[in-house]
Design a binder for these strands. Structure first.
Lengths: 256, 256
DNA sequence: TGCTGCATATCGTAC
DNA sequence: GTACGATGTGCAGCA
């Protein structure tokens, strides 16, 4: 479980300190949008939704592709608004109403050429109490650490977040013969995770006090390519069932 | 360059066929949101922006974190709206106005408990002409494939997207001596890209018909750390100039 | 501040 | 449809 609400509260305090609260601004207008930065992207004139959030971010939405805007500028950034020049008015077959230049600290720029505006309003949202999440990788790791029996009888936990020079191994177990087993936990197992575990195993097996250390790649799903690479490296793949693990957990709670 | 506009046009046709055009719906309202699916997430009651797009997707926005909503359901999904029950009204210290259940084909559900509504309006956006992008990796790959001379005189292309068991190598060349060279193309060269190329080279050099295959890591920018790792692996780094390549391309067009 | 790793990633594309 | 890599990834945690 995790709380994400601190930022909203902090921003509200800042706003109050400065004597005003920035609202969310929603605009429905015809517009042309040009982004230049890590790539260049161009949107011809059409009617779109423009959202300016209290954090200064700007996003240009069409009526599809879920929450992803067509174009955007993330905070922190600054919005400069000006009147269109005569040349600009002459260059477009549109009634221009404003030119926005939204810039960040780098050299990225979002240029919005606004045409006819159908709607333009500000809304105060106030304090965001924050999101509570449950069921991400951290939780899988805790459940697996609490249930070494999932991997084999006689296994026990050495420790979670077992430290190494290049970062902590998710879980270290000792198997029924007392051999060390390093486990990398992912929600979805992909090649990167196998690479990560490989680096840990190289390091751990360089330590005469630990070796031999073998590896297990544990995830709710494992991509075929990751399986291939794991097999090449002599790493075992283990599919884990979050629901079943939670069940296990509750069963143990009842037993003890 | 790429056009992303087909979807919008297709959807408009579908809407016309079915006799109506779905608008974007914007709501400012107090609400509680509960998501259950790949994880569970909970948002306590607060005033937020709720966006329902023409594709059916629903997203719940706070006034920060740029374009990322606090909670969402992507299309395709269905929205069922009902009156709150007496029990529900009694359970909340809020004036409830509606209960939404948004479901997709899997077992994901976004439940929105609506309180006082400050604003609720529909807006027609019409046809989205589409986004034009330029300067992405695919373009670089095409340009390099067309210009083997960038790497050396007498080089020629074997093929783009050269297939291997763990995925396609971006470009395979043969150099002036007939030796194979595998090229990994990135916009920004980082360690991951070197790792990827390393895996390809391991595999390719295991094939007696191909070996020896050496590697080139080609990118517009290459991070110092990536250079170090590449050097360790005997991989050559090649900075490519997108503008110059385009110029090359045009020069060749003029020559032939 | 910069690097690392996760994400309800989303999105396009090849097979 | 599934698998896989790219992304203006965004974003949080941490050194």
């Amino acid at each position: 479980m995790r709380e994400d609400g601190a930022r909203g509260t902090q921003m509200l305090r800042w706003s109050l300190w400065h004597g005003y609260i920035k609202p969310v601004r929603l605009i429905i207008a015809r517009c042309q949008v040009d982004y230049s930065g890590r790539l260049t992207a161009h949107l011809p004139f059409a009617k779109r939704l423009i959202m300016v959030k209290a954090d200064g971010s700007v996003s240009i939405h069409a009526d599809d592709r879920a929450y992803k805007p067509l174009n955007w500028m993330s905070a922190p950034c600054t919005l400069a608004e000006r009147e269109p020049t005569e040349d600009e008015r002459a260059a477009f077959d549109e009634e221009l109403t404003a030119i926005w230049s939204v810039k960040n600290k780098g050299d990225d720029e979002l240029r919005v050429t606004l045409g006819v505006v159908e709607f333009d309003n500000n809304f105060e949202l106030g304090v965001e109490p924050g999101l509570v999440k449950d069921g991400v990788e951290a939780q899988l790791q805790v459940l697996l650490a609490e249930n070494p029996g999932v991997f084999g009888a006689g296994w026990h936990l050495v420790r979670r977040e077992y430290p190494t020079a290049i970062g902590p191994v998710d879980i270290m177990y000792r198997d029924e013969n007392g051999a060390n087993v390093a486990v990398e936990v992912k929600r979805r197992g992909e090649i990167d995770g196998v690479e990560q575990l490989t680096r840990y195993l190289e390091l751990l097996n360089a330590d005469p006090l630990l070796r031999p250390v073998r590896g297990i790649f544990a995830a709710q799903q494992i991509k075929p390519q990751a399986k291939v690479v794991a097999a090449e490296r002599g790493i075992e793949c283990k599919l884990v069932d979050y629901e079943a693990l939670q069940g296990n957990d509750h069963a143990e709670e009842r037993l003890f």
